[in-house]
């Protein structure tokens, strides 16, 4: 399958999903409009309840990112880079990736502009961006939405997965493209 064909079938996914849900609900005699509004109302309340959590996470991540603390962290971690033969920019991207989605996206675009998307670092950045997620944001939002304050070992698990994705990306991009 080419990527265009994939893209084509993707544009059908969401309309198809909504169609099936509504059709099935209609057949089963659900009062669709009322039920939809009920759910949307719940969604509204949930989204509003999230605002304080979002403010908290955005402020702490914002201060941490803008202050240059990330660069200090990268310097401290640079011995690991030598072991797995990864460029510094890649580690920087990996850290930013767990903190902020938009920031990681703009850093990747900046790497594309400077080195090109088909360079080693461009491919590495692509692979890393595609294989990890904004760990801190997800944890804060998901737990925040139900009012959980003690997140136990969730952050540790998220960071372990992020680290695995970083190491695996470096390994596979070196193997496939070098």
């Amino acid at each position: 399958m080419t990527s265009e064909m994939l893209g084509e079938s993707f544009s059908w996914f969401i309309p198809g999903l909504i169609f099936i849900v509504f059709l099935y609900g209609h057949i089963k005699g659900v009062r669709i409009f009322e039920v939809f509004i009920e759910g949307a109302q719940e969604g509204f309340i949930m989204a509003v309840k999230l605002i304080p959590y979002l403010i908290g996470i955005y402020i702490s991540v914002g201060i941490f990112r803008e202050s240059g603390a990330v660069d200090i962290l990268v310097k401290l971690l640079s011995p690991i880079l030598k072991v797995i033969k990864a460029p510094t920019d890649a580690l920087l991207l990996s850290i930013i990736r767990s903190l902020s989605g938009p920031a990681a996206l703009s850093m990747t675009m900046e790497i594309f502009d400077t080195h090109g998307p088909d360079s080693f670092i461009g491919r590495l950045a692509s692979t890393m961006l595609g294989s990890s997620d904004t760990t801190f944001y997800i944890i804060a939002v998901y737990f925040g939405s139900v009012g959980i304050r003690k997140t136990r070992y969730s952050v540790l698990l998220g960071l372990l997965a992020d680290f695995a994705s970083f190491v695996a990306s470096v390994y596979i991009v070196r193997k496939v493209f070098l």
């Binding site: 999903l17 909504i18 099936i20 849900v21 509504f22 099935y24 609900g25 057949i27 089963k28 659900v30 669709i32 039920v35 939809f36 509004i37 009920e38 759910g39 949307a40 109302q41 719940e42 969604g43 509204f44 949930m46 989204a47």
Partner: peptide, 17 residues
């Protein structure tokens, strides 16, 4: 976005999907 999808999710839930 949350309103939209929670609405759809609620329909899917009520219908037994």
């Amino acid at each position: 976005i949350v309103g939209l999808w929670m609405g759809i999710a609620r329909v899917a839930e009520k219908s037994g999907l």
